[in-house]
C-alpha cells in the first residue's frame, strides 16, 4: 500500500503561527477527511503536503523516501484548490488530456459536456468549470488526490455522482484527502478523520468527532 506522510509541519504568516505540529498520513485506497473551523489552516496544510506552500519546517515521505516537493513527482499527487484555477484559454478536452484523463470518462460523469470538447474553459459557467476540474482531478492517473472543498458550488445531483466516483477510485487504490464544510457528505464518504485545532492535527474517531460542538446536530 502506498503511504504519503507529512510530519512536523510548522507554518506562520507573519507573527501568526497557523500550524505547529501538523501531521498527516495518507494511505492508498482510503478516503481521509480533514475537519476544522475556518482559518485553522486546513488549506495551508494541504498546500504543504502538495509541496507548493513553503513552511518553516515540514518533512514529507512517500513510502519511506523523503520528498522536498511532492507535486514535482511524476504520477504521485494532484491538488484541487478551493478557487478557480483553470486557464480560460484552453479547450475542455485539452485540459482533460493534459491531466491524463480520457474525454469519454469525463463525459460519462458529466453528460452536459457532451459535444462540447472543443469549447474553451472560459465559456463554462462557474459551477460547470468547478465540476469539470473536480472530475478530472479525481480521475487523474495519480496515487493521491487532495480535494479542497470539492462539494462547494456544485448542485446536489452532481455531489452524489462525485461521491460515487471518489468511492470507485478509492477502491482502485487511490488515496484521497478531502476537506469541506458540507459535513454530511464528508462523514458519509470518509473512513479516516483528522481534526485540526489550534494549529495541531490529530487523528480522531468518527464518534469522537461527532461530539464536537458543530457536529451535534448530526448525532
Amino acid at each position: 500500500m502506498n503511504i504519503l506522510e507529512t510530519d512536523s509541519v510548522t507554518l506562520s504568516y507573519g507573527t501568526r503561527t497557523v500550524i505547529s505540529g501538523g501531521y498527516m498520513k495518507l494511505e492508498g485506497g482510503r478516503i481521509h477527511a480533514l475537519i476544522g473551523r475556518n482559518g485553522y489552516g486546513k488549506s495551508s496544510l494541504m498546500k504543504v503536503v502538495f509541496g507548493t506552500q513553503p513552511a518553516e519546517f515540514s518533512f514529507t515521505r512517500y513510502n519511506g523516501k523523503r520528498l522536498q516537493h511532492p507535486y514535482k513527482e511524476q504520477g504521485l499527487i494532484r491538488y484541487l484548490p478551493q478557487f478557480d484555477f483553470l486557464p480560460r484559454s484552453i479547450r475542455l478536452q485539452s485540459f482533460a488530456d493534459a491531466y491524463g484523463v480520457p474525454w469519454e470518462k469525463v463525459i460519462s460523469c458529466l453528460s452536459s459536456l457532451e459535444g462540447r470538447a472543443k469549447q474553451y474553459v472560459g465559456s463554462l459557467s462557474g459551477g460547470e468549470s468547478r465540476m469539470l476540474a473536480t472530475v478530472v482531478m479525481i480521475c487523474s492517473p495519480v496515487k493521491f488526490v487532495l480535494l479542497d472543498e470539492p462539494f462547494t458550488h456544485i448542485m446536489p445531483l452532481h455531489i452524489d455522482s462525485i461521491k460515487d466516483l471518489i468511492r470507485r477510485e478509492a477502491e482502485a487504490g487511490k488515496g484521497f484527502m478531502i476537506t469541506d464544510h458540507m459535513y454530511d457528505h464528508v462523514l458519509d464518504l470518509a473512513d479516516k478523520f483528522y481534526y485540526m485545532e489550534w494549529g495541531v492535527t490529530r487523528e480522531i474517531s468518527r464518534e469522537e468527532l461527532l461530539e464536537k460542538d458543530y457536529f451535534l446536530r448530526m448525532k
Binding site: 516537493h69 507535486y71 514535482k72 513527482e73 491538488y79 478557480d84 483553470l86 486557464p87 493534459a98 491531466y99
Partner: peptide, 13 residues
C-alpha cells in the same frame, strides 16, 4: 496568481 495551480498539477515549478 491562483492560475499557477494548473501548472503545478502538471509537475511544473
Amino acid at each position: 496568481s491562483k492560475k499557477l495551480y494548473y501548472y503545478y498539477n502538471l509537475q511544473l515549478s
